Simulated scan of single mutants.
Amino acid sequence: MGEETTTRRSLRYELTEGPGLAAECRDLTQRALAAWFGRAGARGREPVEDVLLLVSEVVTNARTHGSAPYELCLEGRDRALWVQVSDSSPGRPVPRAPHHAGRPSGHGLFLLQRLSARWGSVSRGRGGQTVWFEVDVLR
């Protein structure tokens, strides 16, 4: 029986409140993708665009529905990227049902359901929550 090998890389960023936070998180994620996945992590590939959109949505949701996110964690595992965004909101994310494409907002969790391989949230008690998702970068 062969041995299973997993290539794992991870980065943790402490975030500060301020303008351009979603763009900063997208840039950090883009650089990690390029470093870890090479040309597949280059701008313009569909899975990469999905990851960057989801990072923006999760960071924006944290800011809109809770508090400013305080941490972004990225972990590359073989063909996938696992993203975690932590904030101090005590509430867990709840998708609006049914989804209506014509609404001006409320699409973030719908996009997570549609574009990620899997997603969820972990309560940190009074310390907030972490929303996470995984996207297969090398499809």
Rank of each mutant, 00 (worst) to 15 (best):
G2H: 13
T5M: 10
T7K: 10
R8W: 00
R9S: 11
L11C: 04
T16R: 13
T16I: 05
G18M: 04
P19T: 04
P19L: 08
G20N: 05
G20K: 03
L21C: 00
L21W: 00
E24N: 03
E24C: 01
E24F: 07
R26L: 07
T29Y: 09
T29G: 03
T29Q: 10
Q30F: 06
Q30A: 15
R31S: 12
A32N: 09
A32T: 09
A32W: 00
A35R: 12
A35G: 08
W36E: 13
W36A: 12
W36C: 10
W36Y: 06
W36R: 02
F37P: 02
F37M: 08
G38Y: 08
G38C: 00
G41F: 11
G41I: 12
G44Q: 09
R45C: 01
E46L: 11
P47K: 06
P47H: 01
V48Y: 04
E49H: 01
E49K: 09
V51W: 10
V51L: 08
L52W: 08
L54W: 02
L54P: 00
L54K: 01
V55F: 04
V58I: 09
T60W: 06
N61S: 11
T64I: 10
T64E: 14
T64Y: 07
H65F: 14
G66R: 06
S67P: 04
A68Q: 09
P69Q: 08
P69A: 10
Y70W: 14
Y70M: 09
E71M: 13
C73F: 09
E75N: 03
G76M: 08
G76Q: 05
G76V: 08
R77H: 07
D78G: 06
R79D: 15
A80D: 12
V83D: 06
V83K: 05
V85F: 05
G91Q: 15
R92L: 15
R92A: 14
V94D: 04
V94S: 03
V94K: 03
P95W: 05
P95L: 07
A97E: 15
P98V: 12
H99D: 04
G102S: 14
R103H: 15
P104H: 09
S105Y: 14
G106L: 02
H107Y: 12
G108K: 00
L109Q: 01
L109W: 00
F110T: 14
L111N: 15
L112T: 04
L112D: 06
R114S: 14
L115G: 01
S116E: 05
R118V: 06
W119Q: 02
G120A: 02
G120S: 09
S121A: 15
S121C: 06
G125P: 06
G125H: 07
G125F: 09
G125C: 07
R126G: 14
R126T: 11
G128N: 04
Q129F: 00
Q129K: 14
Q129D: 00
T130M: 02
V131A: 00
V131N: 00
V131P: 03
F133N: 03
E134S: 10
D136V: 15
D136N: 11
V137I: 13
V137N: 10
L138D: 14
L138I: 13
R139H: 12
